[in-house]
């Protein structure tokens, strides 16, 4: 019956004057439709339409059984047991804990650095990435040298465009510049700049095969290093006198790469 198929909920007239015209006004199709839209419908005209109609009651019971099964199925989904505690931690001050973790991580980083620098010799590709990065920093300098703090949401938007996340509470890192750049292989890299004691500090997150070890920046003006991460490379670069380890710790402890 084609006309039935065309008569969807939006087109079915609602009989608000049921009280004056009697309960029998609802036809089977409207009842069927409303039972499927909301089997717990308590409007009087819907309830009246059940009177003396065992077939309608049966249909409604069937749809209600379906709803009960849907609710039972949803209720049976296992909610991860630690989820609630994890969500509540969001509201706890975590700076001290972060600093403890950062300290522990920095010790591991320092030991790793000592070991890796003894053995590591960069490949030609890795040296090329280093050179491209320095060239990029010099080229971009006019854009970030006098930049003012930007909203964290802008930073997040840039990170999201490169499939990278930084799990940092808002205002932890005062970023003055956030942009995508072409460093790395085929995918976009992120260039963030924060203000250090002696000038801007650049933090670059680059999608490229992790390098074989930590690579010190070799430049007349800048200092810093490139550090391999789980799914890319991270570089923190600033002026010669800048203390960069705190920036490096902060980023390395909070970065999450999407592969």
């Amino acid at each position: 019956m084609p006309y039935q198929r065309q008569l969807l909920p939006a087109q079915i007239p609602m009989h608000k004057d049921a009280a004056t015209t009697g309960p029998a006004i609802m036809d089977d199709l409207e009842f069927h439709t409303r039972a499927h839209c909301n089997p717990d419908d308590t409007q009087q005209d819907f309830l009246d339409a059940l009177t003396g109609r065992a077939d309608r009651q049966q249909l409604l019971d069937e749809v209600r059984v379906l709803d009960q099964q849907l609710k039972a199925l949803s209720a049976s989904l296992t909610v991860p047991p630690q989820l609630k505690q994890s969500l509540l931690k969001t509201a706890q001050p975590s700076v001290i804990k972060r600093n403890i973790f950062a300290l522990a991580a920095s010790l591991v980083l320092a030991v790793g650095f000592a070991v890796s620098t003894m053995q590591y010799s960069p490949s030609a590709d890795e040296l090329a990435m280093h050179d491209a990065m320095i060239e990029h920093l010099v080229h971009e300098e006019p854009r970030y040298i006098d930049a003012q703090p930007i909203q964290w949401s802008e930073v997040e938007a840039v990170l999201a465009s490169a499939d990278i996340k930084l799990h940092l509470p808002e205002n932890t890192l005062i970023v003055t510049f956030a942009n995508l750049c072409g460093l790395g292989n085929n995918r976009r890299a992120v260039h963030l700049v924060a203000m250090g004691e002696h000038g801007p500090v650049s933090m670059l997150l680059i999608h490229s095969p992790p390098i074989g070890g930590n690579m010190e920046v070799r430049d007349n003006r800048f200092k810093g290093r490139i550090v391999p991460a789980s799914a890319g490379n991270m570089a923190v670069v600033g002026e010669k006198d800048e203390k960069l380890d705190k920036f490096e710790r902060l980023i390395s402890n909070s970065v999450q790469w999407s592969i």
Binding site: V95, I96, N99, P149, N171, T172, L173, I174, A194, M195, G196, E197, H198, G199, K243, K246, L250
Partner: peptide, 20 residues
């Protein structure tokens, strides 16, 4: 120049300033 996080308390102060 000004360092955003010399210590945890500096960081907290800075956060307060920015929020203000």
């Amino acid at each position: 120049m000004y360092s955003p996080w010399s210590t945890a308390s500096d960081l907290a102060k800075l956060g307060t300033i920015i929020q203000e």
